[in-house]
Design a protein around this nucleic acid. Structure first.
Lengths: 305, 305
DNA sequence: TGTTTTGAATGAATTTAATTCATGATTATC
DNA sequence: GATAATCATGAATTAAATTCATTCAAAACA
């Protein structure tokens, strides 16, 4: 018999395009999902996907179920928001402190969506770049901070959002384009183009260059497009989230390369005061961010608490 | 985490008004449902019903989930119909043979609903009362017959619809109104008013009067209201489905009494040719009949295959 | 006002179902 | 054509749902 669990799987399948990735997305093994899909197809006595292809393709029947899934899960989310409001009221304050430039890309759509669902919650962005976003929480000048490390701290809890890969980008005809994988040394004789933020907020700096004691020339820019433009004009190299550069890759302006054998992974957490962790609108904000981000940004991976 | 199973339970709860009856409706024990509801309330951290009352009352949060349930389960049904059509086409023929008068009461709404969902299926009623409705199936003059006993027969399968109680009705000031429970003997000196059908199609006759060799005076009428009217005017007594007389009981025209210590139970099955049992529209017709009937007729009970 | 009946709750035992593990098969990739 | 990567499968395991046996609470009855 059909359950919501099955529909959640279908959504993950569509968003990831493969059984293994979908499994990871819903915190199950590939095997579990394979069994689950087999069971579904047996129940409806017809195939729901063609697995021979990458990404997998839904059959007509599969598409129909997928449409059902989207419809139903939206409605469930909406009902659960109502229950949360019934339980503990609908008003509150949610000031978000952001320390990364690219965060705005996914934050804005999520905030839009949230604003519609919780009109009585005062949603705001604490602007400017702060060395210590968690300090803003403790001094009550913000209620939620987006951070890239979950450093334990009294009175603060960290809720995982998602992880993604930072890739090195360079002009197509630049010598580094020949290397599949870059190491710290490869940056030594380049100009690194990055956002104007403190060094410790740059993942590349913290995790790659600093440990290897490599310090390339630097140049900064506020805007992602500007950085891409500089890279394309051979003014330097940069490290950016894969999902942020993908559109430019497809147009061929620049090429992307892995940094380090395992790739350079970037993680994002929401930090909030422990006392606020139970607030319904707070939890819903986090769900919204995750849901919207996974649905729209390519290549995200889940991040365990 | 919420699953459709929970929503199916909520619907059953509303339709029956009690945990025990709802449990029977969804083929589980009372205990199972009690655990399930406890889990649900723990998940949403708030009560969903007040149990102190009979029938139980939903809280605001409960009502919200119930609305979700109705919405979602409708959509699931609709999607599953689409899948069935994708699998095996949407056209066909469905001629229904009916042997009981009251059947029309629940059959018509179900047929209306079905017609909208399967416009390409030719739906028809084989009119007139036939001594052998199953014969109509074998000679292909009907595709589905509503019968009250599942007599095994080659090439025919019986699918349970539902069961209900037949009650004796009598005028308020008639002596029999004093007796809580009627026995066969109580009919001996009464005039029995019934539909004009062969005796073996009258449950009261088959199961009560014939075994006890009691044969009261008889009088027939085609219409339920007319029978009620005759009973109210002290022209006799009748035995009718509880759900059919309930509205008249509430207006006080007549009173209803149990027949036999255990009550006189009536069962309904759909008989169809074995080869047709797998047809999607056939199965959907049966689901529709059950679903609509349970939702609208009071006092129905489930009937196991 | 007991007494009996009925419906719901609870904890432990059980059954059922979902999930993982280990591995083989299949399909992409270079 | 070799080598990953992805998916499928059966058995083992784990987790979850359900039942069983009982208690508790409330309502109906005498």
């Amino acid at each position: 018999m059909l359950e919501l669990r099955h529909l959640r799987t279908l959504i993950a399948l569509q968003e990831t395009g493969s059984v293994s990735l979908a499994a990871e997305r819903v915190f199950l093994t590939q095997s579990a999902l394979s069994h689950q899909l087999k069971q579904l197809e047996a129940y409806y006595q017809q195939p729901l996907f063609e697995r021979k292809t990458q990404p997998l393709r839904f059959t007509l029947a599969g598409e129909r179920l997928l449409a059902l899934a989207r419809d139903l899960l939206d409605k469930v989310a909406s009902a659960e928001r109502d229950l949360a409001r019934i339980r503990q009221g609908e008003a509150g304050e949610l000031r978000v402190a952001v320390e990364c430039h690219t965060c705005f890309d996914w934050l804005m759509p999520a905030m839009d969506s949230f604003r519609q669902h919780w009109p009585a919650v005062e949603l705001d962005i604490v602007s400017g770049f702060h060395a210590d976003p968690v300090g803003l929480l403790l001094t009550r000048r913000a209620d939620l901070a987006i951070v890239s490390e979950a450093e334990p701290q009294a009175g603060i809890v960290h809720q995982p959002l998602f992880a993604y890969e930072m890739v090195g980008i360079v002009a197509r005809d630049h010598p580094l384009a020949e290397k599949k994988v870059w190491q710290a040394q490869d940056f030594a004789n380049e100009t690194l183009i990055h956002y104007p933020v403190p060094d410790e907020m740059l993942d590349l700096w913290r995790k790659v260059l600093l440990p290897a004691r490599v310090s390339p020339l630097r140049r900064t820019s506020e805007l992602t497009v500007a950085i891409i433009q500089l890279v394309a004009s051979r003014r330097g190299v940069a490290a950016l989230p894969f999902w942020a550069v993908k559109p430019y890759l497809e147009r061929g302006y620049v090429v992307a390369r892995r940094i380090g054998e395992q790739g350079l992974s970037s993680e994002l957490y929401a930090a909030l005061r422990s006392e606020d962790a139970g607030l319904a609108y707070m939890q819903d904000f986090l769900s919204t961010v995750r849901e919207r981000s996974f649905a729209t940004l390519p290549g995200l991976t889940v991040l365990e608490g």
